[in-house]
Design a protein around this nucleic acid. Structure first.
Lengths: 149, 149
DNA sequence: TTGGGTGCAAAGGCTTTGCATGTGA
DNA sequence: TCACATGCAAAGCCTTTGCACCCAA
C-alpha cells in the first residue's frame, strides 16, 4: 500500500493537485478494502472513524478525481448507488477491468478475470470497425451458497 | 407491431391489469423505435405528441411495468439516465440480452448478438458453482465513423 | 359500480455546486 | 503568500409517492 500511496502522491503533484490529509485518508480506506464495492456514503463513514470532520462533498470530489486518475473503478449495480473499488490494473496499457458476478439472492459480488472477450473484441474490430478500449461485464445469477440452501 | 400489442394486452389482462390508452401509447412509442435507447423523458416527449395530457409519472410507472413483464430492456450508460428499448428476445427461455457497443466519441450505441459468453458462463458454473441467468455487457470504444475522421 | 390507473405536485435520495474559510507548496 | 481544497448547506436532477379524480371492466 505504500507503493500505491506514493504513486498517488506523485500523480497528484504531476497534475498540479495538492496532497491533502483527506485525499490520503480516502485512498487508504479504498486501499484497505480491495474487492469490496463501497458507495460514497460507506467510504464517508469509514473515513470519519479517523477523520470525523471530513465532509461528504469532499468524498464525492475525491472519488471523482481518483476515478479520473484510474486509481479506482466504478461499478453500478442499478440500485441507485455508484460503487467504487481500488483498481488492480496490472497492465496499465489495456486498462481492462475484471468482471463481476452478482448474486440475485444475497447480493454478494464476486469477481473473476477472463480474457475471453479479447477474441470477441478482435472480431468486432474486424467486422464492424469498432475499436473496443474498455468493457464492463456484469453477470447476474445465483451463487453457490444460495443455490445450496 | 399488432402482434406485440396483442401480446401486451394479453399480458396485462392475465396479470389483472387494465388496458389503458396511456399504456398502449407508451408501448407503441417504444415499439416504433427499435434499437433506440430512450430515457423516460424522451418517451414522455414522444408520447405527448399524440397524447399531450399524459403525465411523466405515468410514463415512469408504465416503464417499470413493461420492464417487469420483460417487454422492454433497461440500459444504463452511467450518464444519469436509465434508458429503455423494446425487447427483442427471440428465445423466451434464456432471456439473454444483446450487447452494446458504446462510442466514446459520438455517443452512438450499436448492438450485436453473440453467444461467446455461453462458454464462459458454463465454465463459471463448473468452477465457481455460480449459475448465471442474465448478463449485461457494455463495450466502450471508438466507432468506425469516428475512427475514420 | 368500483378498484385499479392517471395527473399533478410534492417528496425522496444520490450527487453536485456555491461560497466563505482553511491550508499545502 | 495564494491558488487549490474543504465543509457546510443549498441546489440539481432523476425518480418515486401521495392523493383526489377518472375510467376500464
Amino acid at each position: 500500500m505504500p507503493d500505491n500511496q506514493e504513486q498517488f502522491k506523485y500523480l497528484l503533484k504531476q497534475n498540479g493537485l495538492k496532497v491533502t490529509t483527506q485525499r490520503i485518508a480516502i485512498l487508504e480506506v479504498l486501499n484497505s478494502r480491495p474487492g469490496e464495492h463501497l458507495t460514497a456514503e460507506e467510504i464517508y463513514d469509514f473515513v470519519r472513524v479517523k477523520y470525523p470532520d471530513i465532509g461528504l462533498a469532499t468524498v464525492y470530489r475525491t472519488i471523482q478525481m481518483l476515478s479520473e486518475l484510474n486509481l479506482i473503478d466504478k461499478l453500478s449495480l442499478d440500485d441507485g448507488y455508484v460503487r467504487y473499488e481500488i483498481s488492480k490494473n496490472d497492465t496499465e496499457e489495456t486498462g481492462h477491468h475484471h468482471h463481476h458476478l452478482i448474486c440475485l439472492d444475497c447480493g454478494n459480488i464476486y469477481t473473476f478475470q477472463d480474457d475471453l472477450l479479447e477474441t470477441l473484441e478482435m472480431r468486432i474490430k474486424e467486422t464492424l470497425g469498432f475499436e473496443v478500449v474498455d468493457h464492463e461485464v456484469k453477470l447476474y445469477g445465483h451463487c453457490k451458497k444460495c443455490r445450496g440452501d
